[in-house]
Nucleic acid binder design. Structure first.
Lengths: 107, 107
DNA sequence: TTACTTTATCGTAATATTGCAATATAAAAT
DNA sequence: ATTTTATATTGCAATATTACGATAAAGTAA
């Protein structure tokens, strides 16, 4: 088949998986780290920093944008965007909650 | 191309991506949640709980095993395994560290 | 032994992801 | 108006993932 059977899983499980999928590529991890550590927004040097072709970076940025991790203006030549901190913290909390729920009585 | 250019990224970025990849499927999120909430080990009802075919579950379990999230004995008919808590906490910490590193001065 | 139960592996089809060249778009600079 | 600069989109090839039927393997029960 090849396509995930998303319909048989709960919204919570699907959402966490979707978020994880965005982080499931080293380029996107690197991009996220880079942007999150910038002092200002405007980051038009990603292609040099990451080392992938410009269309590829553009695609990765789009995946990141899709889950709401970027905010700013996306118009014209010089974009101006940065990490959406509210969303960032939501994701942190989502992972943290998931990993906090564990029983201790095991082999 | 289709294959990720892992060699151009740092070990840290690749590792986090690899971990995220395991969580990037709702079935694996559901499996992890189920196992982590069991009182004992032996979980031979995953196929019914998750709702995917037995070979598919087996494959997903293998992905989870690969990043060291399961411990126990994997021999014969009745497996006996559960979450490797040390590793579990390592992953929690890895995500937490990643999300904690963010600058605040932005648009 | 034979049948049963449970998990693993193989083979294969369907779909998704990754990456880039070519090209388009859109604003700024000259 | 033309060139330059920066990002987006399209199209396509290579690879990876997802899923399952068929079958194997390996222990348990009769």
């Amino acid at each position: 088949m090849g396509a995930s059977k998303t319909h048989i899983f709960s919204p919570t499980h699907n959402e966490l998986a979707q978020i994880a999928k965005v982080m499931a590529h080293p380029a996107r991890v690197a991009i996220l780290e880079y942007i999150s550590k910038q002092d200002a927004c405007i980051c038009n040097d990603l292609v040099d920093v990451i080392g992938l072709a410009q269309p590829t970076i553009s695609q990765h940025l789009n995946e990141i944008k899709k889950i709401g991790l970027l905010k700013g203006t996306f118009e014209g030549k010089n974009l101006c965007y940065c990490i959406n901190q509210e969303r960032w913290e939501e994701l942190q909390e989502a992972f943290n909650t998931f990993f906090s729920n564990i029983n201790r009585n095991c082999c």
